[in-house]
Design a protein around this nucleic acid. Structure first.
Lengths: 194, 194, 194, 194
DNA sequence: AATGAATGAGGATTCATTCAT
DNA sequence: GATGAATGAATCCTCATTCAT
């Protein structure tokens, strides 16, 4: 039971617990008490480290976005050529840490949070803009002037697939989602190039 | 003097008020009291007619889905040929009663509701299945064996565009959304037919 | 158990209970729950009628000041001549509803409340100003130009006696307090007239 | 390296911080944490030195009374003749360390504390008795048999002036208060001697 | 039908206090 | 001596829900 430098450990545990709890419960109606218990501490301590429930949820959201963002960056750097880059973005979106049931549920709830929480809305807009930019950049060599429009469309499709998984009953099937979006991209490219 | 036939009027007013309140507030954290006040009655009366908050919200959701469904049906009947039918579905999705700011916000919240409310989830799945079926049916003559897959994709895109509008700050722009999805459908078709 | 028009009854009961509770407890650290219980209702109802703890305490303070003010007015109207009017003010200050142990304790606490609650401070200042004006007016015929100064002094003495009673252990002795202040007024008058 | 003799320094700092904090906040609703921070240490340390919040506040009160008492003693020793002694008491009450805004606020709060804290009440009564004795003693040569009564009255007036300052908005004006009480004493004396 | 009264459970938040280091 | 971690009780407030009229 170490007594110093607990802050990062506790904050981390709380963020993870918050995401898990939102995922499990399927809504933002989640109590600080339950999150704290899931993280193995008292609700008082949660407040000690985050100051408020909102701040804690916001931190959780930021965490999700940060993980997503860094995975995207890593995948982009490891990719060669426009096609590979587009595919990387799609793949990361539906894989690993970003596409577990509870995480998808949390995402959906953060979308709702953004509707009445300014900071959350800003956060989300920044990430969406970055995502669009990534897609545009990757698509420029393939689609030329139509890249912006296509980037927009691919982003919409990714979001749409997320939504479907958020509502489906089983574990999300990342491979299928990737295949679907990819197929769509291929088809559209062909259409474009025609 | 007991007013006759008040029930449907009251229920209707409450449902509309619930949707408006959810839209205005941007979350499901909406109180029966406020909904009732918006509908011009006491919270007691709201319970009298719906029995519970959940039942009222569910009725509101059902209402949204019913309106959507009937508009789709009407548009399909008025359309001639596969292309027109696909377009009708897209157009209805982004127009009129279904694409006002507050309604989009309410939709998003009902998605969340479906995560922890069984009846809501069932309702949503039924409607989504019907929508897919409509799309598949309309696309079969155009895409043959790939129709199911394409229907799925168009549905995802519609949902994705909804999501974007739910997070945008201004009034949703239905025309732009229709144009985008249509363009995409065209391109994909071309690709497919190639 | 009447079901209509409860509001004034409940508000009144809560105000009285608040004063009693503050008096009994000797501090503003009084819970809404205890006040409500003393008034025979749930804490929820107290909030229903006052909106907040602060508003309730403020109403209690206002009540004390209003009672005091109206008793002063009544006594002034029943008094003939300057001397009688000064005496009336002194007498009312130390009698009846204003000089019970619990009420004196509540007064003291409202003084504290005025230190960090703007509305409370304003309320208190208005009443103090009115009190000074009453005293000045009554003293003018007796003390001429020195009336303002003497009014100030009498007011200070009244407050001082209140304070002593607030700290004493037994039931406050109004008669003694009146006699003391009156004796002092007499002596000072004589001094002045010399 | 254990610092030697830190205890008195720490205790002193905490007492001063407590008074300042009560003065600044205008109420006894003051947290150990804030007091400790103001004194430049952790809340844990505050407990280490005082054992409890109550004990700390009591020590602060004792400090105020002790300072007041010793200043009175010093002024009395430096005064020659009854009149000078009475004046000394009045002057000290409204000067220097005893009549700063925050200190007056703290006094008021200690009066409240005395209502539900036995030790505080005892403390206050002892000091008030001593004060009365001082005044009586100083007044005996001037007022003879009426000295007790007059001492009582002067004490009440001093308290009353304190109260007024506690509620005023600006910095307390000691000179004015002294002048007022003195004028009053003079007038009463003249009246008495007549 | 309709209201407003009433309850009571539940949740965020604050804080004194304790304890391991 | 000193800190910051940690707890848990206490409190305000909100709200769905019930009920008498």
């Amino acid at each position: 039971m170490p007594k110093l430098g607990m802050e990062p450990i506790r904050r981390d545990a709380l963020i993870k617990a918050a995401i898990a709890e939102i995922g499990a419960q399927g809504s933002l109606d989640v109590t600080v008490g339950r999150i704290a218990k899931r993280a193995g501490m008292s609700s008082g301590l949660a407040h000690h480290y985050f100051g408020s429930k909102d701040a804690m949820l916001l931190a959780a959201m930021r965490h999700l976005l940060a993980v997503y963002g860094s995975e995207i960056r890593a995948a982009l750097q490891a990719s060669d050529g426009p096609k590979a880059r587009v595919e990387a973005i799609v793949r990361v979106s539906f894989s690993g840490s970003n596409f577990r049931r509870e995480v998808v549920a949390a995402w959906l709830n953060f979308y709702v949070m953004a509707q009445h929480h300014d900071a959350a809305a800003r956060l989300l807009r920044v990430y969406q803009a970055r995502m669009r930019a990534n897609l545009r950049h990757a698509m420029r060599p393939l689609a030329g002037a139509r890249a912006p429009q296509m980037a927009e469309a691919v982003a919409a499709m990714i979001d749409g697939c997320y939504l479907r998984e958020a509502l489906g009953s089983g574990q999300p099937d990342g491979a299928r989602a990737v295949a679907q979006v990819q197929a769509w991209v291929e088809a559209a490219m062909t259409g474009v190039e025609t």
